[in-house]
Amino acid sequence: MLNRKVLSALGVLLGAAPAVAYDSSYNMPVGVTQIAREVHSLHMIVFWICVAIAVAVFGAMIYSIIAFRKSKGAVADTTMLHSTIVEVIWTTIPVLILVGMAVPAAKTLVRMDDTRNAELSIKITGYQWKWQYEYLGKGISFYSTLGAESNYARQLHSGIDPNTVKDYLLEVDHEVVVPVDTKVRLLLTANDVIHSWWVPDFAVKKDAIPGFINEAWFKSEKIGHYTGQCTELCGRDHGFMPIVVNVVSKEDFARWVADQQAAAKAAAEGAAPTATTATTIAPAASAAAAR
């Protein structure tokens, strides 16, 4: 019934997609958490369902365009006006497909919502235009702003080629450090306007809203640097408040925490705070000190 040549041509065209679809400059990253992998597979499942429907629907359209053209002598069948059976069929099939998609999506949603049994809590506050990270109960608090090199290069008419800057716009002065294989709970809020904290490799995107706290969590299974950006328009420098999460081994994390606490103690004891050390005074005081 369907024109085989058209179908196979279409197949080749669409078949070309997966070859590139897994390249990270074309597609969603698989990510480094269980949730991110689930989200990625949901994305791919829905994508392929769409491709399958597209093959059928576009196939029928293309076939009609080729086969039923007046120039080829096609005569219109003007008696074909409606068909209840057909309408019922093409309403029911999509319903079934949608149910099939909704079930796994709902399951993942439930898992994403479960913030219990977190081993580490980090409070994240969005500012115009930087992030503040406070490790709850650990006395560690610091701001994270766009790295200096990117910041020079991104100025209007800076004359610096962004291609010469490593990780242009995705580098910060203070990275968030978290241990691997640890459930990290994020408490998000904002100081001024709404921001949104997004790290694609964790499949975490949550708004930071002034006056309110939102929860999110991730458990990275792989050591490494993961980057993200603010994703809610928050004013002039919205494009320039990146996120860098450095996932380290549990031992390295313990060492990092000890270093930070020691540095904080030194700073609190009246030593001139060094620019490179994150300050770890009481959260509110540090918020004030930064102004």
Binding site: S64, R69, A74, A76, V86, A102
Partner: peptide
């Protein structure tokens, strides 16, 4: 997701209008 259904119905009906037409 439900919106996909009536929208799909429209697309199918347009396709069926072209089917066995004289375009």
């Amino acid at each position: 997701m439900l919106i996909a259904i009536p929208t799909g119905v429209k697309v199918f009906n347009w396709t069926a209008t072209m089917w066995k037409g004289s375009m």
